[in-house]
Computed example of a mutant assay.
Amino acid sequence: MANVAIVILAGTESHADTGRLVNGLEAAKEFEENDGDEVEVIFDGAGTEWIPELENEDGDYHELYQAVSDDAAVCDFCAGAFGVGDAVDDAGVVRLDDHDGHPSIRSLVDDDYEIITF
């Protein structure tokens, strides 16, 4: 049994960023498929920019995102800072603002979550 938080920090600007997103979502899906594992997927920083694209049913990675979207959340502060707040709200993705408007990584560590960043 594993407790894992996958933090997507990669933005949408490059092929390398897309690779990091896909690898992060695939890792989350693998944990999701393993009974007993707990996974959180957090879009933080420039990673918040992926939400509108991932919510688009015609997008390349929509299906992969849907496999883990029940476990997804977004940094509240960064959603606003990166201009995707309305898209996050429209999608109904949970906003995290536990520490100065950002997700609390410390609380995840305190809850014995392994933090993996992409």
Results as ranks from 00 to 15, higher is better:
28 A>W: 05
29 K>R: 15
29 K>L: 15
30 E>A: 15
31 F>Q: 14
33 E>I: 13
34 N>M: 14
35 D>K: 12
35 D>I: 13
35 D>A: 15
36 G>T: 07
36 G>P: 11
36 G>Q: 11
37 D>N: 15
38 E>Y: 02
38 E>Q: 11
39 V>T: 05
39 V>A: 03
39 V>W: 00
40 E>D: 11
41 V>S: 08
41 V>R: 03
41 V>W: 09
42 I>R: 02
42 I>H: 00
43 F>S: 04
43 F>I: 01
44 D>N: 14
45 G>V: 03
46 A>H: 03
46 A>L: 08
46 A>E: 10
51 I>E: 02
53 E>P: 00
54 L>Y: 07
59 G>M: 10
59 G>E: 07
60 D>V: 09
60 D>A: 15
60 D>R: 11
61 Y>L: 00
62 H>V: 14
63 E>C: 10
64 L>V: 14
65 Y>N: 07
65 Y>P: 11
67 A>M: 14
67 A>C: 13
68 V>A: 11
68 V>D: 07
68 V>N: 11
69 S>E: 14
69 S>H: 12
71 D>F: 14
71 D>C: 10
72 A>K: 02
72 A>S: 12
72 A>R: 04
72 A>E: 01
73 A>T: 06
73 A>L: 01
74 V>T: 08
74 V>W: 05
75 C>Y: 10
76 D>Q: 04
77 F>K: 07
78 C>W: 07
83 G>Y: 05
84 V>W: 00
85 G>I: 03
85 G>F: 02
86 D>M: 06
86 D>Q: 08
87 A>L: 00
87 A>Q: 08
88 V>W: 02
89 D>A: 14
89 D>V: 04
90 D>P: 00
91 A>G: 09
91 A>M: 09
91 A>E: 04
92 G>L: 06
92 G>E: 01
92 G>T: 04
92 G>S: 05
93 V>I: 15
95 R>K: 13
95 R>C: 04
96 L>H: 03
96 L>S: 03
96 L>Q: 04
97 D>C: 01
98 D>I: 01
98 D>H: 04
99 H>C: 09
100 D>K: 03
101 G>F: 06
102 H>N: 07
102 H>P: 08
103 P>R: 01
104 S>W: 02
105 I>Y: 13
107 S>C: 01
107 S>P: 09
108 L>G: 06
109 V>S: 12
109 V>R: 13
110 D>W: 08
110 D>N: 12
110 D>K: 13
111 D>K: 07
111 D>M: 09
113 Y>A: 11
114 E>P: 03
115 I>Q: 09
